[in-house]
Lab assay of single mutants.
Amino acid sequence: MTEYKLVVVGAGGVGKSALTIQLIQNHFVDEYDPTIEDSYRKQVVIDGETCLLDILDTAGQEEYSAMRDQYMRTGEGFLCVFAINNTKSFEDIHHYREQIKRVKDSEDVPMVLVGNKCDLPSRTVDTKQAQDLARSYGIPFIETSAKTRQGVDDAFYTLVREIRKHKEKMSKDGKKKKKKSKTKCVIM
């Protein structure tokens, strides 16, 4: 069974824990209790493949930012979460993405942009803004509501699919490099 290491990042209060708990335990946590770091595991079937999701729910508070490099190193894919009623959390996505790329030393890291709290009427981040940002990053965008469960499975499952595509691409690139290195030079 394939294991996928997913990391949920975003500013404090955007609903990272609520999304994760909704996926794992099928219930909505409405009281806000700032996370330092929590880890969850769940076995699911995605596109006919049974897999184990190892999900790291991270601290959004700035005082825990020193811990970010460590979990970013171990993560295979990242859910970059903002709240649709919090423009600052949307603007912060850029910083999370840049930090992930720096730590992973790669421009090509599996990510999904997630606009959470889409059940709320007080939207300050337009869907088109988020779609445009995701398009500019070359990553999928999904709106979710941890409260109603809308888009929750889709967000995590899409990230797994992005990781699969990335692994497939990397193995193809690896095979191309191996083929090239088999060419021999004969000096007579």
Results as ranks from 00 to 15, higher is better:
Lys42His: 12
Ile36Phe: 10
Leu52Tyr: 14
Thr58Cys: 11
Ala11Thr: 08
Val8Glu: 02
Thr35Asp: 02
Tyr32Ile: 09
Ile21Asp: 03
Gly15Tyr: 00
Ala18Gly: 13
Gln25Arg: 10
Ile24Gly: 15
Tyr64Ala: 14
Tyr4Val: 13
Lys5Asn: 14
Gly12Val: 06
Ala18His: 04
Phe28Val: 04
Ser39Trp: 03
Glu3Thr: 09
Gly48Ile: 04
Ile46Glu: 12
Ala18Pro: 03
Thr58Pro: 02
Arg41Cys: 08
Lys42Thr: 12
Ser39Ile: 10
Ala59Val: 03
Asp54Arg: 04
Tyr64Arg: 13
Gly60Asn: 04
Ile24Tyr: 10
Leu53Asp: 02
Ile55Val: 12
Asp30Phe: 08
Thr58Val: 08
Val29Cys: 13
Ile46Leu: 10
Gln22Trp: 10
Ile55Lys: 01
Gln22Ala: 07
Asp47His: 10
Gly10Gln: 01
Ala18Gln: 09
Ile46Tyr: 10
Asp38Val: 02
Ser17Cys: 02
Asp57Glu: 02
Val9Ser: 04
Ser17Ala: 00
Gln22Ser: 14
Pro34Leu: 04
His27Cys: 15
Gly10Pro: 00
Ser17Leu: 01
Asp33Pro: 03
Thr2Ile: 08
Ala11Cys: 13
Gln25Pro: 03
Leu52Cys: 15
Ile21Gln: 10
Pro34Ile: 04
Gln25Ser: 15
Asp54Ile: 02
Ile55Tyr: 03
Gln25Tyr: 06
Thr50Cys: 10
Ala59Pro: 15
Thr2Gly: 12
Glu3Cys: 07
Tyr32Cys: 06
Ile21Lys: 04
Lys5Cys: 03
Leu52Lys: 09
Arg41His: 06
Ala11Gly: 08
Val14Pro: 08
Pro34Asn: 03
Glu3His: 08
Gly48Thr: 09
Glu63Ile: 03
Gly60Lys: 04
Leu19Gly: 14
Gly48His: 09
Ser39Tyr: 04
Glu49Gly: 08
Ile24Thr: 12
Gln22His: 08
Ile46Gln: 09
Gln22Phe: 05
Leu23Asn: 15
Ala11Asn: 08
Thr35Ser: 03
Arg41Ala: 08
Ile46Lys: 10
Gly15Pro: 01
Leu19Lys: 13
Leu53Ala: 10
Gln25Cys: 11
Tyr64Ile: 12
Cys51Glu: 11
Lys16Trp: 00
Asp57Ile: 01
Leu23Ala: 15
Gly48Ala: 07
Val14Leu: 13
Arg41Pro: 02
Thr35Lys: 01
Leu23Ser: 15
Tyr32Lys: 02
Leu23Gly: 15
Glu63His: 09
Thr35Leu: 01
Lys42Gln: 10
Asp47Met: 04
Lys5Gly: 06
Ile36Gln: 03
Asp54His: 05
Gly48Phe: 04
Leu23Lys: 15
Thr2Met: 14
Phe28Lys: 02
Asp38Gly: 02
Glu62His: 09
Leu56Ser: 13
Asp38Thr: 01
Leu19Glu: 14
Glu31Val: 08
Ile36Val: 11
Val14Ser: 12
Gly10Tyr: 02
Ala59Trp: 02
Asp33Phe: 04
Gln61His: 12
Ser39Cys: 11
Gly12Glu: 12
Tyr64Gly: 15
Gly10Thr: 00
Gly15Gln: 00
Glu49Gln: 14
Ile36Ala: 03
Ser17Lys: 01
Leu52Phe: 12
Thr50Ala: 11
His27Ser: 14
Val7Cys: 11
Asp54Tyr: 04
Ala18Asn: 11
Tyr32Asp: 04
Glu62Gly: 12
Val8Ile: 14
Ser17Ile: 02
Ala59Leu: 02
Thr20Phe: 01
Glu37Thr: 02
Tyr32Met: 13
Ile21Gly: 10
Asp33Ile: 05
Thr20Lys: 01
Tyr32Thr: 05
Asp33Cys: 06
Val7Asp: 03
Gly60Val: 03
Gln43Cys: 09
Tyr40Val: 02
Asp54Gly: 04
Ile24Trp: 05
Ala59Asn: 10
Ser39Thr: 15
Asp38Tyr: 02
Gly10Arg: 00
Gly13Pro: 10
Ser17Asn: 00
His27Trp: 14
Ile36Thr: 04
Leu53Tyr: 07
Glu49Cys: 07
Leu56Cys: 14
Glu37Asn: 02
Gln22Pro: 03
Leu56Pro: 01
Val29Leu: 11
Tyr40Leu: 02
Gly10Val: 00
Leu19Met: 14
Tyr40Arg: 00
Val45Tyr: 08
Tyr4Lys: 15
Gln22Met: 05
Thr35Ile: 01
Gly48Asp: 09
Asp30Ala: 12
Asp33Lys: 02
Glu3Val: 07
Asp47Cys: 05
Tyr64His: 15
Leu53Pro: 06
Ser17Gln: 00
Thr50Arg: 11
Asp30Asn: 10
Gln25Val: 09
Tyr64Asn: 15
Lys42Ala: 09
Leu53Glu: 06
Cys51Gln: 12
Ser17Met: 00
Val14Lys: 07
Pro34His: 04
Ile36Glu: 02
Tyr4Pro: 15
Pro34Cys: 05
Ile36Asp: 01
Ile55Gln: 02
Leu19Arg: 00
Phe28Pro: 03
Gly12Asn: 09
Val7Met: 10
Leu52Asn: 14
Val45Leu: 11
Val9Leu: 15
Leu52Val: 15
Tyr40Asn: 00
His27Lys: 12
Glu31Ser: 07
Val9His: 05
Phe28Trp: 12
Glu31Pro: 06
Asp30Ile: 09
Ile46Ser: 12
Val7Glu: 03
Thr2His: 11
Tyr40Ser: 01
Leu23His: 14
Val45Ala: 12
Ile36Lys: 02
Ile24Arg: 05
Tyr32Ser: 04
